[in-house]
Each structure stands twice: as C-alpha cells, then as structure tokens.
Design a protein around this nucleic acid. Sequence first.
DNA 1: TCTGGGGTCCTAGGACCC
DNA 2: TCTGGGGTCCTAGGACCC
Length: 402
Amino acid sequence: MRLARICCLDLDTFFVSVERLLDPSLRGRAVIVGGRKGGRGVVTSASYEARAFGVRSGISIRDATRLAPHAVFVEGHMNEYSEYSRRAREIVERYSPIVVAASIDEQYIDFHGCESLYRAPGDADDDATILRVVRAMVRAVEDEAGLPASAGVATSKSLAKVACGLAKPNGVRFVPAGAERATLAPLPVRKLPGIGPVAEQRLHELGILTLAQLAGASDLSLRPIFGAYTASIRRDALGLGGNELGRERPAFREHDPRGSAHGTISNERTFVETNPETTASMLSGLCERVCSRARSRGVRAGTVTLRLRYADFDTITRSKTITPTSVDVEVHRVVLQLYRMARTRPLPVRLVGVALSKLSLEPSQLSLATFDDGERRAKTVDAVRAKFGYDAVHLATTVRTR
DNA sequence: TCTGGGGTCCTAGGACCC
DNA sequence: TCTGGGGTCCTAGGACCC
C-alpha cells in the first residue's frame, strides 16, 4: 500500500532570506542576489517583491536592472548560505532520521514508519498526523532558523517536489494516496522535474501541453525526446514514481572524512580575456583549486577535462584519461596540453573550466610512504593553507589578479 | 533571456580486444 | 587479406537541476 510519506522541503527564496537575516533593512524590499546592479552575471535568487516586476532566477543582472531598477542588488555570501542551510537541516533531522539534501535549499524527508511516534488524540488518521508534523517542522525552520519554507508531501519523490512547488510560497501541500493522478493531470508539462525547455518545446510540437496528455502519449512518440528516461517520466506523470530519496549531493560532503569517490569536482570562471597571460593564469588557478578540493576529499582524479567557451558562446570540452593524481602540477600539465589542442579559433574566450572525474580513493592517510614527491609537496601546501589561508601559497603560474 | 557556477546523467562514435 | 559480433573504455556533447 502506497502512503504519502515522502516530503520535499524547500527554503523559499533562500539566498534572499539569508541576506535579510544579515541585514534586516532588506525586509519588505525588492532584493536581487547575484551581482552588483548593472554588472555581469545572472540572478541566483529574487525576492517576491522583485518577481512582481518579472525578475526570475537565471536572467541576466543587466535585464534585472532594467526590470527592477529600484531593487537592492547584492553579490551574495556563499559561506553564510552554507551555514544557514546546515541549521535548517539540523532542525529537519529532529523530525525524521531519513533526510537527504538535494541542494543547498532543498531536502527530502522520509516519514514512513513515523506515524506511531507522532500520533495524537486529535488526529483523524495517520495522514493527518504526518501533515501536522510537517507543518510543525516548516514552522520550526522558520521560527528557529528564520528561514521561510514550503513543503510538499506525497507518495513519490517526484510528486512531493511538484506538490512543494504548488505550495509556494510558505505553504504545505499534502497529496494523499489515490489523488496523485488528479493532482498532476491539469499541470503544464514543464512542472514535472526532468522536463526542461528543450523537452517542453518538443512536446508542444506534438500537441502535448499537460501531464494528462503526456501520460497518455505513445511510447514511440516520447522515446526520441526522453530516451532512457521515457518509462520513468511517464510513471512520474502518472504519480507512480519511486519513493527512494536518492543520493546525497556530493557538494555537501566536501570535508567528509570517509571520502567519496563519486562524481566530479569542477571549477570554472567567466572573465574578460585581455591577453593570453590572463587565461594561462586562470587555468593554473583553476587546477590548484580543483586539486585542493580533491585532496580535501581524499580522492585522485583519473580524468581531467578542460572546458572552453568562446566569445560567441560556442563551448567545447577536451578530456584525457590519466594515471590518477591530485597533484596540481600534474593536472596543470595535462590541462595545458588539452588547451593547446582545443584553442583553435581566433576568437577571445569568455570562460575556462577544469573538471576532475573518475575519482578514486587515495590509499590510507597513515602510509605516507605510498605518496610520491609531488603528492608530499601538495600535502605540505595543504598544511600551510590550513594555517594561513588558501591564498598563502600558489603555483608560480597563478598570478594573483585580485 | 545574449546567458554564472556547481553538479548529474544519457548518447553516440570510435578504438581496441577477443 | 577480408570477414563477424560483442564488450568495454575513451571522448565530446547536450539536457537538466539548483
């Protein structure tokens, strides 16, 4: 028997909320996080007052400036966001032991089996119990961490997220077992997680506008759009998706002492290329950054990828499989090699990026003898940085520009 | 919508091996 | 020298999410 026990909790306009905690004078005003007024970059979070003027996450700061010139523009405080995210999570963990962070402002909570723990005389049934508890949890996040939140509760992870979207702002939406299909049917296809602008466009071309139409479409018509996802997209459109919470996002386990060999470590920078030296220095700095992060996670990279975006936005990647390493100079050597291969057009670049993947765990920290000279040098750099800060040491090829 | 930065996962062709 | 077919790895690109 499926029960509505999966909860998606999302912090409303999270970055804006934190900025308002740091500076209470921002309350009630149009606030846009992402960059200085009129500058480069995109909006990462906009208050509802700013949204009233058409400002959305993802649009350029320039456009946001045009739409809402009266708004307060802030660049953002990433370290504070992580700290507040952690606080919200601690509160949520009091309500269920099964919590998975999907991003800095979104968590999934499994309440299966929690009914008897929370049952109270006034509750009409177990659903009522869970709904009451979720409301209390949302209130606690708001009261104790100062962060307004919304929540959706449903039988599957996908529908819980959709329900959370319907609950915004600052609400709770409960979709009981049996009501899944009716809840999803009238919604535009774009509301379903996994359907982005490209799939939306292609579905529209087929005359498929709602999730009811999507659920009824033939496999043959959906295959070219969703490929391997076809079956799961259809299940989600019917509200029959799975109730597993999935993996914790690795970005939140950077300093996990156990280490995680999963995923990718990447850094990229958009900049104005004034001369070849700026680009060379940028690449060197990115290599240092990703390698430092790899070492802090206790992993080595088996693949190095260079990413390069030209001024016309054409983006290419070049990658190379290597003997696993986390040593800056070794990664840097490969990156320069890839850069020489990739940089073929006579156009300025606007972005460079370095990614490490095919990660493998380092041997035990105790056996220092297993590290080669490069690795021992890198560990010394890490020790110096731990004491004096990241910028205390750099490769000679990384020229400080700030 | 003239477009930041961090990720995940899928596709598809070619190399290489058996 | 030409002929299969399958498996796996590597590489490049792209959709999507927050």
